[in-house]
């Protein structure tokens, strides 16, 4: 018990928690900044959608699929030159965030596309019949209508990104995952590994449940609330 308390209160452990949260949240945010326009593009250019364009759809879809099919550990190596160019270093936390965003943005784009597809086409048609332009349809119809589904998608995205964070240990990044890998694998201090993993489980639970609650809370399709 004493050992656990020593571990949990150690400054190394606490900075690891904060770093994990930072990496996860910043990467998720940046992935959405890139993923939303990509998702809108994938949705809007698809056949029968609001601005169909077969060529753009095929090209963007192809790129997204390619990045999504490369395993993250390999992508981590492949995108190193670009990381060096953009964030100044091939390794470390900032480079890791860059790699995570490259890997997660296409995934986020597909999640957004699928949330958008759930919006009733009839509602979009009604908005068109009222003379809405495409920008209004996206901002005033599709985004608000898809909000609950987008939040659920966000929960999946953020927990998936969190699941990737231990790989930071490959490129000298930090965080709880790296902490667990280093102590558990290389120094055989399993207690520390278990504590770090337990904390990761707790963080995932909190993120998932709070976002689920938020999605339910803001979904007006549910009667008698």
């Amino acid at each position: 018990m004493n050992e656990i308390i020593t571990v949990v209160t150690s400054s190394k452990f606490i900075t690891s928690i904060l770093l994990t949260l930072k990496i996860t949240l910043v990467s998720t945010l940046l992935s959405y900044i890139i993923g939303i326009p990509l998702g809108v593009c994938l949705y809007g250019t698809s056949e029968g959608s609001i601005f169909p364009n077969k060529y753009i759809n095929t090209v963007v879809g192809f790129i997204v699929n390619i990045i999504r099919s490369i395993p993250f550990v390999i992508l981590l190596i492949m995108t190193q030159p670009v990381a060096k160019l953009l964030v100044g270093s091939k390794i470390g936390d900032n480079a890791f965030i860059f790699h995570l965003v490259i890997a997660a943005a296409p995934f986020v784009a597909r999640m957004i596309e699928s949330s958008f597809r759930e919006v009733d086409p009839g509602v979009i048609e009604a908005a068109q019949s009222m003379g809405s332009n495409n920008f209004q349809i996206i901002t005033k119809v599709i985004l608000p209508e898809a909000k609950p589904s987008l939040i659920i998608g966000g929960a999946i995205a953020v927990t998936t990104i969190l699941g990737y964070t231990p790989m930071a240990s490959y490129i000298s990044g930090g965080g709880l995952g790296e902490y667990a890998v280093n102590y558990g694998l290389y120094r055989s201090q399993e207690t520390k590994m278990y504590i770090a993993s337990l904390l990761l489980i707790i963080i995932v639970q909190i993120l998932q449940e709070s976002l689920n609650f938020l999605a339910k809370f803001c979904d007006k399709r549910i009667r008698n609330k």
């Binding site: 009839g122 509602v123 019949s129 119809v141 608000p144 399709r221």
Partner: peptide
């Protein structure tokens, strides 16, 4: 011009979040 030609539908097509 579409603002002068309104339309209603079998499925109502209301914005469910409004």
């Amino acid at each position: 011009t579409r603002k002068k030609i309104s339309m209603i539908f079998q499925g109502f097509n209301l914005l469910s979040q409004r």
